[in-house]
């Protein structure tokens, strides 16, 4: 697969996911909606990180550096939610 074709396909996938997340927000999903929204957002972010930011070509170190912010943000949100949901 050539580089440009790959970028076009990734772009198309991103657009598809965008349509999906807008569509999903109109379905009567209730409390499941955030799960779906953020799962789609994570998929989009994964595509951007993996292909656009070229983490697929990197070693473990750069991948870890690229992910570190997200991992640490997960620490913050998880323990914060632990307080908020049981207060």
């Amino acid at each position: 697969m050539t580089a440009s074709l790959r970028l076009v396909l990734v772009w198309a996938a991103l657009m598809g996911l965008l349509a999906l997340t807008i569509g999903a927000s109109f379905l009567p999903l209730g409390p499941v909606l955030p799960v779906i929204s953020y799962a789609i957002a994570a998929a989009k972010a994964g595509l951007v990180l993996w292909f656009f930011m070229e983490l697929r070509e990197e070693g473990g170190l750069a991948r870890l550096a690229g992910m570190a912010g997200f991992i640490w943000l997960a620490f913050l949100l998880t323990l914060l939610a632990a307080d908020l949901t049981t207060r």
Binding site: F75, L79, A82, D83, L84, T85, R87
Partner: peptide
Amino acid sequence: GFLVWGHHMFVAGQSPYA
């Protein structure tokens, strides 16, 4: 060290479970 910050808020109204 990133996972312990809540011990500053034991009496501040934080959930006892947290």
